[in-house]
Each structure stands twice: as structure tokens, then as C-alpha cells.
């Protein structure tokens, strides 16, 4: 609240608050933010879920042989992710397709809705992406151990490398394996946060009459880039999830 007052209270001078847009606030009333408090996180996640329902449930309501535009959108997304899962993980990965579709659509819709002016982007928060990233990590690790037991550790043991190098490679492989969830989650949050912050910084410059045209052109250009990033990050997160899942299902290289 204090930050907001400060942001609105600025009368003179150039004051940037590029990170204010990431603040988590209560939707109703005053008070501390408990785990159950409805916040702007709740609102924008609910809107993402609602948008998904609109496109994928109401859009496909007609079950038309010749699809309407919105039904076509749902079908394209379905085919896109289904093909990705099948291509990367193989046929036995298809049963995890609904979860991967959930991840993809949640990230995509949260990113896209976050590009609306005055909105809030849940995927710009490391807490959210870390839950996603570590969730995927623990799931595929446990799945690999459960399915293959000790053989799952063969993932780290390059049997086609020279024997003397294998322990070294194994150490590197283990480190890179445990870095996966960190990079997986920070990549998403970092990209989204950086883009939004840059737009905000340029928006701050737009207050100066002399450079405001440049600033507005820059905002427009970066906004276009951010639309691309919103999609690409959802895609990257999803395809990496598929790759990790493939490692769990088929640990042999």
C-alpha cells in the first residue's frame, strides 16, 4: 500500500517503479496476505483458467466437423502438444499428455493475459515457476526411479564414453541434472519479468515529451517481442518437460 501511494504520489521528476507491477495485493480489504487470501494472483490465475475453459470447452462445444475459429484454435493447440509429446517421449509418454497440456496452457494463457495493460502475470513470479519446475523435476525423477530402479542411474553413466572419463562425465551429468529445475523455472520467470520491467521502464521515459515518440515506438516493438516470448517460453517449458519425461521413461541414451 505504501508503495502504491508512493507511485501515485510522485509529482515531479522521473520516478521508475518497474517492479510495482509484480506486487501481490489483496483483492478485498486490508490485512496480511495469508495462504488462502484471494489476491491478484488468484484473480489472474482464475482468468487464465476461465480463458482455457472458454477456448477448449465452449469452443469445442459444437463438435463440428468443419470447426469454427475458436474450435480450430483448440484443435491446433491439442495437435501441437500431442505431437510434441509423442515425438519427444515416444508412445508411452502419451498418458502424461493431459498434464503436459495443463502446464502448456496455464503458462501460455498466464503469459498472454499478463500482456494486457494493468494486468498481473503469475508466471513472472519465481514462486509459481519454481513449483512448476520442481514439480516436473520430482515427478520425472520419482517416475524414473519407480519404473527403472537402479537402472535409472544409467542416465548419468555414459557407457559409450572412454572408461576413464566416465566418472567425470557422471559428476557433470549429476550436477546438470540437479540444475535442471532451477534453470527450468528461472528461465520462465526471468524472461517474463524482464520483458514486463523493460516495457515499464520505457513507459516511464514516455513522460518526457522530447523522447516520448521514441519511447512509444520502443514499447510497441518490445510488446510485439513479448507476445513472441510469451508463446516461446510456454513452448520451451513444455518441450523441456517432455525431454525430462523422456529421460525418465527411457534412461538409456
Amino acid at each position: 500500500m505504501a508503495g502504491q501511494a508512493e507511485a501515485h504520489g510522485e509529482g515531479s521528476g522521473l520516478v521508475f517503479h518497474p517492479l510495482d507491477q509484480f506486487k501481490i495485493t489483496r483483492l478485498f480489504g486490508e490485512g496480511p496476505i495469508e495462504w488462502y487470501t484471494p489476491t491478484n494472483v488468484t484473480l489472474w490465475m482464475a482468468l487464465a483458467a476461465l480463458a482455457i475453459v472458454v477456448v477448449f470447452v465452449f469452443g469445442s462445444r459444437g463438435r463440428a466437423l468443419v470447426p469454427s475459429r475458436i474450435q480450430s484454435l483448440g484443435e491446433v493447440a491439442y495437435s501441437f502438444i500431442y505431437k510434441m509429446v509423442e515425438d519427444v517421449t515416444g508412445h508411452d509418454g502419451v498418458k502424461y499428455f493431459p498434464w503436459i497440456m495443463t502446464l502448456f496452457l496455464f503458462i501460455l494463457f498466464a503469459n498472454m493475459l499478463g500482456l494486457l495493460p494493468m494486468s498481473f502475470t503469475p508466471t513472472s513470479h519465481i514462486a509459481v515457476t519454481a513449483v512448476l519446475g520442481f514439480g516436473v523435476f520430482f515427478f520425472v525423477t520419482l517416475l524414473g526411479l519407480f519404473k527403472h530402479g537402479f537402472h535409472f542411474l544409467g542416465l548419468f553413466w555414459m557407457s559409450d564414453a572412454p572408461l576413464i572419463l566416465r566418472p567425470v562425465i557422471a559428476i557433470i551429468e549429476v550436477i546438470s541434472y540437479f540444475v535442471r529445475p532451477v534453470s527450468h523455472s528461472i528461465r520462465l520467470a526471468g524472461n517474463i519479468m524482464a520483458g514486463h520491467a523493460v516495457i515499464k521502464v520505457f513507459a516511464g521515459f514516455a513522460a518526457i515529451a522530447l523522447i516520448s515518440p521514441v519511447s512509444i515506438v520502443a514499447i510497441t516493438a518490445i510488446y510485439g517481442l513479448e507476445v513472441l516470448v510469451a508463446f516461446i517460453q510456454a513452448y520451451v517449458f513444455t518441450i523441456l518437460t517432455c525431454v525430462y519425461l523422456k529421460d525418465a521413461l527411457h534412461p538409456g541414451h
Binding site: 489476491t39 509459481v128 513449483v131
Partner: peptide, 11 residues
């Protein structure tokens, strides 16, 4: 906790 809770619900 708030974010994680609502994320899990949404997912």
C-alpha cells in the same frame, strides 16, 4: 504460500 496455494488450485 498464497501463490503456491492458488497455483495448485488453478492447475
Amino acid at each position: 504460500p498464497n501463490q503456491i496455494f492458488w497455483l495448485v488450485v488453478t492447475l
